[in-house]
């Protein structure tokens, strides 16, 4: 059991996809204009990661080597489309905000990366834990990044405005601010990681 917990913890810290592995940068930079957007993008990826990791670890032993990438992509794409249907049906507002980035989870390198590096070589339960850990790591990083950008850029926290106006530092809502925040957060994260 501690082994499984270890896997989850690794995904959160040592294998943190955003701050350590630097994977999935496109949705990271594009969707984190606010904390809630970052959080929902993270959760969407988490959902796909856990399910695709489980499915792929289950079918990996029978998948011939030469076609393993197409098979994995089909499996991942199925879960992403499933998620898209569900979001469209039950959380239409969130679907509208994330829009384009949901189908792009298919080609998110975190998902295929974990399938290749972990799920294809490990059991279903271990793969689920790995997906959960990495997904949570992604979710936390995106939420923190979104929170920082929202505070600086819009002067609000999870949509709650605390400066009584709409005039934050606009640059942080746009792409340059995304790079700046990501860079500084990465520095902080790795400094903290090295100390321990």
């Amino acid at each position: 059991m501690s082994n499984k917990l270890r896997l989850i913890a690794d995904g959160l810290v040592k294998n943190n996809p955003t701050f350590v592995l630097l994977l999935g940068m496109c949705p990271t930079l594009a969707t984190t204009t606010s904390a809630i957007n970052g959080l929902s993008m993270g959760l969407a990826t988490l959902f796909v990661l856990v399910l695709s990791n489980m499915a792929i670890s289950a079918i990996a032993p029978v998948v011939p080597d030469k076609v393993h990438i197409p098979v994995y992509i089909v499996v991942i794409a199925t879960f992403v489309t499933l998620l898209q249907f569900l979001m469209q049906a039950y959380t239409p507002a969130m679907y509208e905000t994330l829009g384009l980035f949901i189908p792009l989870i298919v080609v998110n390198c975190i998902v295929l990366g974990r399938a290749e590096a972990f799920a294809s070589k490990n059991g279903v339960l271990a793969s689920a834990c790995d997906g959960l850990g990495v997904g949570l790591g992604f979710t936390c990083s995106l939420t923190v990044l979104g929170l920082v950008r929202e505070i600086l850029g819009s002067g609000s926290v999870f949509g709650y405005n605390f400066i009584g106006g709409n005039d934050g530092m606009l640059a942080f809502v746009m792409a340059p601010g995304a790079f700046l925040c990501l860079g500084y957060l990465m520095v902080l994260f790795n400094k903290f990681l090295k100390k321990n």
């Binding site: 029978v62 998948v63 011939p64 080597d65 076609v67 393993h68 098979v71 089909v74 294809s120 070589k121």
Partner: peptide, 22 residues
């Protein structure tokens, strides 16, 4: 870990995967 590739199992696995997913 992965099975050895030959034409039959490649077609079969890809075909079945796509069918189940659709």
């Amino acid at each position: 870990m992965a099975a050895k590739s030959n034409l039959t199992n490649m077609v079969l696995v890809l075909g079945v995967t796509c069918l189940v997913c659709s």
